[in-house]
Structure formats: C-alpha cells, structure tokens
C-alpha cells in the first residue's frame, strides 16, 4: 500500500514535470519563431527600401529634368559638389546609385570632361546589396538630345 502510494506520487510528479516542460518548450519555440520572422522581415524591408528609393530618385529634382528623365548637367554637378554624407542626410544611409548610358565604354563624369562622358555614381561601396536596375532617359543639355541609360539603385545589407 505504501509503495503503491509512492508510485502514484512519482507518476504525478513526472506528469507535472512534463506539463511544465511542454509549456516552457512552447514559449521558447514562439520566441524563436518571432526572432526568425524578424530576420526575414529585415531582408524584406531592405528590398522594399531599395524599390522606394528608386522611385524617389526618379522624381528627385537634384538629378532629373522631369520624371524618369535625368539631366546630365545636374548629375555631373551633383557628383562634383555634393558629398555622399550630405546626400545621406536627405535620402538615408546605406544606399548607392549609378547611372550609365548604353555605350560600351565607361567614362566617369567630372567638370573637366563634361559633356563627353557617360557614367555617374553616388555613394558606391564594395558590399553586397539589394539592387534595382531600370531603363531611363538622360537629357544631354549641351547636345540637346536624349540618350538611353540604365539606373542602378541599391541598398546595402550591412550598414557601413
């Protein structure tokens, strides 16, 4: 009788132990799930930001003549007069932008070789990024013509 009671008691304690164990495991699992979701969310946010930044740059008066039409004079002037740190104050951190015409050669623009150049870049670093590439027009002010080009806008995965 005494042993039967002790055996029942042990069963009961073991049952309680397993119930508590399952509850704690559930709590840990939910916490782990939240952390994983946050990680995935961060990645999604970087992509969303890259797209949002691309759309904002396409109408930004610093660079464009009109929506989706860049002005080569403004691009060259921005390249030579505005530092990346100053642009970060307006457009945020951890991004970059490149524009190039469809020519095969790459001639970075500056005040000395304007307008005989075809490439502009802002805040470029050697880091992995989420990038959007879209075709744009580039208005060549001096020649009074429109060239086709490609705009690359990216957001770096790691902030630098």
């Amino acid at each position: 009788m005494r042993f039967k009671s002790q055996s029942n008691l042990m069963e009961y304690l073991l049952l309680i132990f397993f119930v508590v164990f399952i509850i704690v495991a559930l709590i840990l699992f939910i916490t782990w799930w939240q952390v994983t979701q946050l990680g995935m969310k961060k990645s999604q946010e970087i992509e969303d930001r890259a797209l949002s930044l691309t759309k904002e740059i396409l109408i930004n008066g610093f660079f464009v003549k009109e929506e989706s039409v860049f002005d080569d004079g403004k691009l060259t002037a921005a390249n030579t007069t505005i530092k990346c740190e100053e642009l970060k104050h307006i457009l945020g951190e951890g991004w970059f932008m490149k524009i190039k015409t469809l020519d095969e050669s790459v001639i970075p623009c500056n005040e000395d070789n304007y307008p005989d150049c075809n490439y502009w870049e802002f805040c470029v670093q050697d880091n992995p990024a989420s990038i959007y590439a879209i075709p744009v027009n580039i208005y060549r002010r001096v020649q009074d013509r429109y060239d086709l080009g490609v705009l690359y806008v990216g957001v770096y995965y790691e902030k630098t």
Binding site: D71, K74, E111
Partner: peptide, 8 residues
C-alpha cells in the same frame, strides 16, 4: 547643384 550646372 544648379549653380554648378549653370557654370558647366
């Protein structure tokens, strides 16, 4: 930017 553009 515009000032520099005018100069160019």
């Amino acid at each position: 930017i515009s000032s520099e553009r005018m100069k160019l």
